[in-house]
Design a protein around this nucleic acid. Sequence first.
DNA 1: ATCGTTTACGTAATCGTTTACACGTTTAAG
DNA 2: CTTAAACGTGTAAACGATTACGTAAACGAT
Lengths: 362, 362
Amino acid sequence: MRKGTSASVLPSETESPIGAQPSEKHTIYHIAERVGMSPSTVSRALSGRGYCGEKTRAKILKAAQEMNYAPDSAAKMLKMRRTKKILFAVPDICNPFYFDMINGINQVLEEHGYLMILFYTKHSLKEELKAIQNLREKVADGMIMVSFHFCEENIRAINALKAPVVLTNQYVSAGGQDRFDYVYVDTYEGIRLGTEHLVGQGMRRIAYVGGSLGEQTGHQRFCGYRDAMDGAGLPVDDRWIAESDYTERGGWLAARKWLENAERPEGIVAANDLMAIGVMKAYEEAGLRIPDDVAVVGMDNLDIASRVYPKLTSVALKQEDIGTQSAQLLMSRLLGRPVPNRGIKLLPSLVVRNSSLRAVRT
Amino acid sequence: MRKGTSASVLPSETESPIGAQPSEKHTIYHIAERVGMSPSTVSRALSGRGYCGEKTRAKILKAAQEMNYAPDSAAKMLKMRRTKKILFAVPDICNPFYFDMINGINQVLEEHGYLMILFYTKHSLKEELKAIQNLREKVADGMIMVSFHFCEENIRAINALKAPVVLTNQYVSAGGQDRFDYVYVDTYEGIRLGTEHLVGQGMRRIAYVGGSLGEQTGHQRFCGYRDAMDGAGLPVDDRWIAESDYTERGGWLAARKWLENAERPEGIVAANDLMAIGVMKAYEEAGLRIPDDVAVVGMDNLDIASRVYPKLTSVALKQEDIGTQSAQLLMSRLLGRPVPNRGIKLLPSLVVRNSSLRAVRT
DNA sequence: ATCGTTTACGTAATCGTTTACACGTTTAAG
DNA sequence: CTTAAACGTGTAAACGATTACGTAAACGAT
């Protein structure tokens, strides 16, 4: 039935009206007709699955070549129920933090012939849900998501998905009910490292500027600061804690506030590099010098950390590793390989530069 | 026929074995059965195309809601012959230059409900051809490509495509035969601006470090330098021209070479910021100061240009605008809107900062 | 009551692949 | 020489949506 109708539609060599574009639409049916075989044989020859004689395969391959055949990915997707794409949902394309992650992800995807769809969630829950909806519609086979709205609604939606999802949030699966994986860097540990670095230089008045304490990641990071202070027997003073938004301007505003005080902090720990740079800018504008007037530590270890003046001490979060690990985890799920752990924790490391060194200057 | 087979497959409420996952696969056929209508009616109700009674539409919408229906994008793609995705082929994800472009593109795509597939071509012709192949397989409806291998082979492959393509190369369509559009910033003009800025300060020995002169864009940029020098009656001396690779290290190497000479340049024009920063680093390492010992001008006006020390004078190329304009052009093609011009030229502007100002220092 | 038009819905084909199954032809084994 | 396994190929049914076309009811105008 199908063959009949299709065959009748095929433009015979002589039929095509002069001057008309040659009908470039070539399907396996066209190839089949040309070599005088059935479409299923063509499919087998091209895909390499199932039996196929050597000479026929050669003939078919040649014909496909000559006809400039390209398989239709939509048809393939529909039939195979696989898109060979994964979604990467990221809150903010502008933040350089994610570029390395993209890179890491891409390396793994390439090995498996997967493509990456970049989805920009703009720090909004609604957009994150849109990303999830895309998975429900089978736009991609899986998703890696950096979520800043790691709430009930989100988790439920993700758990309802058939497609595998890897989050980069720190999370302890509640009762093993959850169906997603996660790869994260222990930012708590990172901030603790950074704070202890300052403590270790004998500083006592250490300020902290972080993200919203309501958000999970914001809270974690703050705890790192608090525990480091506690551990050293130093007081955690509300005056020296700023709840900000991970932007340069946010850091700038926090520093301004501290600059107004009579008593100023000896060191400042920022929950990311952008805020650290904002802090440095505020001090610079006030005519003060870093690290002489205040030591600064950031986190993320962005490219710019080594380019600002003075060079910024920063906690390296291994973004690229997060990317590759996430992608590998996702691939394991997609290939049905066994996955030992739901969560993978990566450890940060401190990169010491001039912004935090009281004594030395280069 | 189709209905019969499909209907018989539907799991009736009571049939499903206890403990088994509820079959989550819901299609319009399932919805149709539930409300006692035909699939075509369901399709019409959900897509809003064609006639559909108000009460039935409501009933269908409610059923779809309850069944947690999500349309299968692959099926939609196959039937509608539209993927609602575009490919963005970019040579190098690590280069911050492209992030703003991504941003610009994304803004436009979002308005049209399109998704972006990010394709990393690694500065390789082979990968660029792979991107093109993806279009042939109808992975996306169109493509925006930043090509560094704008050669015969590429152009032919792109012209053979049915899908619209926007390039960001400067290009004069040969005889109006070409079938792609292009949006570009006049980098010739940009380098000319930068060079004239130095010339205007009375400098005479001005060096230039650019990309390969074999590449189109590398050649264009060089011409901007040459013409500015010529225009001021200054000699273009081979000793002060370096052919490099747009990386920081490349700039560093070029500067090292110049530093060995007895006679050193008064000013250096770099064809991008990364190389300019490399140049600055080399001078810094040699214990020299900028702009006192040499004035430096870059191009791209990256974020870091305003963060390095001293702040880098740079030619702003409006990356975000390239992105939005490219995406808009592509969308016009996809929607069949008339497009006045194949090419759109954007003009760069010079952002003067400290690295190039002999007199003033802030 | 009749006709024509509009509205609502169903039938079935279609998009371009893959693949279970059936059927014939070799080939190897007994 | 028979029989069974292995191989090669074709038939037709999927995958899940859209849509041209046909039919029937509802509606108003004559």
